Computed example of a mutant assay.
Amino acid sequence: MHIDGNGVGRFFAGLQGKLSDVRPVSAALAQATKDAAAEAMIAVLKASVQPPGGGKPVVPARPILLGGDDLTVLLRADLALDFAQSFSAAFERKTKELFGQIEGLQGHEGLTAKTGIVFMGPKQPFVQAYELCEDLAKEARAETQSRVSFWRLTGAMIPRDADEIEALTSRDGMTFWRKSWAWDEFAKLEDLVEVMSSDEIGRGPLRRVPELAQAGRTGSGPAPEEVYRRALNVLRNRAPAIHAGFLNAMRELGVDHAETRFDADGYVPLLDAHVLGKLAEDQAA
């Protein structure tokens, strides 16, 4: 995981002529980053230090870089998103608080953070994954809000950057990977994941998301929307309440029509939800 502040260079450029000495600002930014990391570690990692059933306490994370506005850390996959969200909220609050103590910056709203996360296995190459992680953080850049971009590696081949992921997950005007998420939007994706984790969906065709996402790509077999409609019909007949919950979760993500998988921009949320669900399954295994 790599996290850094949004618009930091532009922020400091804007201080020229406004402050005679920016060193207190740099110190405040570095302190805000350290404080945010400490808060996230206490809030998210502390409860996981003691292994289930006892044994030697182990912190499920290893910091690689912590300085300035940057944080790079290896940590257990199931904790990554909660850690990133906790850090981002604390970073926004701490930069506002500490900048407000500097003459000339009173009333500053603070900075937001961008996060890139690569979920990987222990035998996959770190260097390439780290480079991808940095590029995903750039993809999450948005000065007005903290955002996150993530990708789960499933094979030996590692995409070089976000553009390559987009190429792998886009076709026919649709994309199965959303480049980045604001944290309030991400909560809606988590709601879809929760619905899709139900046993009723687990026994039906909607659970086979990768196959559903690829349906029709080769030009043979049923069209993707036909596969999707059939899956929804199976779910509606088997579990009407889950079917309604699924449609509502999709609607919250912008998919307003029950007959389609995609929103107005052609984004299909199913694969991103599947990725998050697989992370939970991997940890349980």
Rank of each mutant, 00 (worst) to 15 (best):
G7I: 09
V8Q: 10
A13T: 13
L19Q: 05
L19M: 06
S26M: 13
S26L: 14
A27S: 12
L29T: 05
A30V: 04
A32T: 02
K34H: 14
A36I: 02
M41H: 08
V44F: 05
L45C: 06
L45K: 10
L45N: 06
K46E: 15
A47E: 14
S48G: 04
V49N: 10
P52H: 06
G53S: 03
V59M: 15
P60Q: 04
R62M: 14
I64P: 00
G67K: 04
D70G: 06
L71H: 03
V73C: 09
L75H: 07
D78N: 13
D78A: 08
A84C: 11
F87L: 04
E92C: 13
E92G: 13
R93H: 14
R93W: 05
K94Y: 12
K96F: 01
F99N: 02
G100A: 07
Q101Y: 09
G110N: 04
V118L: 06
V118H: 05
V127R: 13
V127S: 12
Q128S: 14
A129P: 04
Y130T: 08
E131R: 14
C133F: 06
L136N: 10
E139T: 15
Q145S: 15
R147C: 10
V148C: 11
R152T: 13
R152L: 14
R152S: 14
G155I: 09
A156H: 12
A156F: 07
R160P: 07
D161K: 04
E164P: 07
E164G: 03
I165D: 01
I165R: 06
M174I: 13
T175C: 07
W181T: 03
W181C: 04
W183Q: 02
D184L: 08
K188T: 05
L189F: 03
L192H: 03
D199V: 15
I201Y: 03
G202N: 09
R207K: 11
V209Y: 03
E211T: 12
L212C: 09
A213P: 08
Q214N: 13
A215Q: 08
G216H: 07
V227E: 06
R229S: 09
R230G: 12
L232P: 01
V234T: 12
V234I: 10
A239P: 06
H243R: 03
G245P: 04
N248L: 14
M250Y: 02
R251W: 01
E252P: 05
L253W: 02
V255E: 01
H257Y: 13
A258V: 02
R261P: 02
R261Y: 00
R261W: 00
F262L: 00
F262Y: 13
D265C: 00
D265K: 00
G266Q: 01
V268H: 00
L271R: 09
D272F: 01
A273L: 08
H274F: 12
V275C: 06
L276C: 07
G277V: 07
G277Q: 05
L279A: 10
E281D: 13
D282V: 15
Q283P: 05
Q283V: 15
